[in-house]
Nucleic acid binder design. Structure first.
Lengths: 346, 346
DNA sequence: TACTCTTGGTGTAACTGTTTCGGTAGCGGT
DNA sequence: ACCGCTACCGAAACAGTTACACCAAGAGTA
């Protein structure tokens, strides 16, 4: 019931001015523009066009473009999305809410303006509120790799706490007593899960929880590499590590090799994997594995089915991860490795 | 000058009927629909809406969705695209021409209907004609990883023939005389380049070009692994390989390890890399490297600048690849490896 | 046979938002 | 006082879609 014409009538301007104001065109007085935007917000204006039939999904990033690195997780996610959209022949549009949503407009209006009818949301620890607001507006959406208490927020993610605990318990079972963890310094839900799983295992085994063995790292190869050096420089260094990120795991592997350490003879290493990276590395590393392709596929399929009227209700799902033992875990050596040892050896 | 109203007038129906016919809505006689579509094609009808201002790029696949695997190359490409679109705040939409373009409509009409104003085209050996047709229509587009003689087709790709020759000459210089190549069985331009570079090097060195040493493989890990087994089962097996695909290289590495062969002591291996896979493997493999991120970035930046009026003309560019020596190439062993040797050793 | 009732197909008109064109008001220069 | 430029805005025409009425033809029924 609210069109550009009602807005125009309400504040006493022409539809042309309203249209120009809403689209950021030049030649409109700033005062007038603000009045139009305010009135549009008041009456809950949304662009009404043929987009009721638009069959486009958004993969929407909630943080600034400079921080969107589109790494292995996003790539695997997209791979799944591209499979999931085919059942109902949707397209997928990559959007950036942070970059493009104007503060005045609602999320629904934003997505309508972009011509998408549903959104797969990528969130981070500091943008969870955005996801909640989108769901509260009733816009069809699903959050990837996070979870929410509010029942109106749909999400699909991985449950990695239990398998992380299993991974650390595997190390304990092998005989390790000093186990370091390198976890992403940005405290999102996934990495907090893995940290919690680590703590669960340590406490359940009655072992001491040493804060020095918990390293907040940057989740890339350098971060993993530096963590290895840090751990080995401790007075009482760990004999095993758990890294909660694929790239960090690779970096740790490389640093170990550079230090002349042989896995799993001198050190044990459990990593994390989104896709097939563990199989590309050498040795193929023992890892907690989540299937990002599956997350993309299921989210896209559910959303397209929802928008096609084939289903209703919510999707709030945690897919279990899988702990996979490969070739980087074994019993600890008689003497714990240290930086000095490795230097002498190399 | 051609709108739904002119079409309606030309064939004597109402605009409503034309609109319904063009959008595949029900309640329109099949004969009438065909007449509308024919007339629309005749007058070159394209949807005229706000799309003059649409700031959306397509990443368009020209082949069927089932064959779109969205592997490492596509992921790196998208990574670059997402950087390249930010300068002019474009969005990117992933389309599938094969799936969605109706036979009656022009490519321009298709892209307009999808709401994109420019297209980055992914092609394969059997869809080059599509790219040419799109360029011939004058629609702003650029083809990734291929090249064309027709001056109206824009493209950006990698030149891998010269560096492939360099790679094989590197092996020859190390003393190898029997060198196998595993090349993608689908004969697209890129892989044909690498095949040609291999032949260049062999011929320039005055060596025999043995067809048995050229293996047409599937470009995945199994393909690479099987090629190793095939090569080593030859009566006079090669002492070095060149694989023209990252996954095939990884598969070859794994198979070598599984056979108990140590690189580069027992065998030399040159691979190909799109991104950072060579650094993830062990040993980090010597490789011809192309920067897929750069291809995505430059194509997106050029296209967005073109559409923003900041530039005109064409982009027809071949980016040189780079031959990078890592740890999988050395002088050949005294005795060529064979399957029997490896089995005994293992 | 005559009378509903349904349904596929169509046109009119009203709806959506955008854009062109022209006009007004204000300001500065001569 | 006059001219010219520019920012701003409205009327009207443009684009395509859709709700609604209508009509013809067929099916069913008294």
């Amino acid at each position: 019931m609210s069109s550009v014409r009602t807005i125009a009538k309400n504040i006493g301007v022409s539809v042309a001015t309203v249209s120009r104001a809403l689209n950021g065109k030049p030649n409109v007085n700033e005062t007038t523009r603000q009045a139009v935007l305010a009135e549009a917000e008041r009456v809950g204006y949304t662009l009404r066009r043929n987009d009721s039939q638009s069959r486009v999904l958004a993969l929407a990033y909630t943080w600034e473009p400079g921080r969107v690195d589109y790494g292995g997780f996003d790539a695997a996610l997209m791979r799944g999305i591209l499979q999931g959209i085919n059942e109902h022949r949707f397209d997928v549009n990559i959007l950036n809410i942070f970059r493009d949503k104007s503060p005045d407009e609602s999320y629904t209006s934003f997505f309508r303006r972009k011509g998408v009818s549903g959104a797969i949301l990528r969130t981070s620890s500091d943008t969870r509120e955005v996801c909640h607001d989108i769901a509260a507006e009733g816009f069809p959406s699903i959050v990837i790799a996070d979870r929410f208490d509010e029942p109106e927020v749909n999400f699909i993610g991985s449950e990695s706490r239990v398998e992380s605990r299993k991974a650390v318990e595997h190390l304990i079972h092998l005989g390790h007593r000093r186990i370091g963890i390198g976890v992403h310094q940005v405290r999102d839900t996934d990495h907090e899960d893995r940290r919690a799983g680590y703590i669960d295992a340590i406490k359940a085994a009655g072992m001491e929880l040493d804060p020095a063995l918990i390293a907040d790292i940057v989740a890339d190869m350098d971060g993993g590499a530096n963590a290895v050096t840090y751990f080995l420089s401790l007075p009482d260094p760990p004999t095993a590590f758990y890294f909660t990120d694929p790239l960090a795991t690779l970096g740790a592997l490389h640093r170990c090799r550079a230090l002349g350490l042989q896995l799993p003879r001198d050190l044990s290493l459990v990593g994390f994997d989104d896709s097939d990276v563990r199989q590309h590395a050498f040795p193929p590393f023992t890892a907690v594995c989540q299937d990002a392709v599956q997350l993309g596929f299921e989210s896209a399929r559910w959303l397209t089915r929802l928008l096609s009227g084939q289903t209703s209700g919510s999707l709030r799902r945690l897919v279990p991860t899988r702990f996979e033992i490969n070739q980087t875990t074994a019993a600890p050596p008689n003497k714990a490795p240290s930086l000095d040892d490795s230097r002498n050896r190399g």
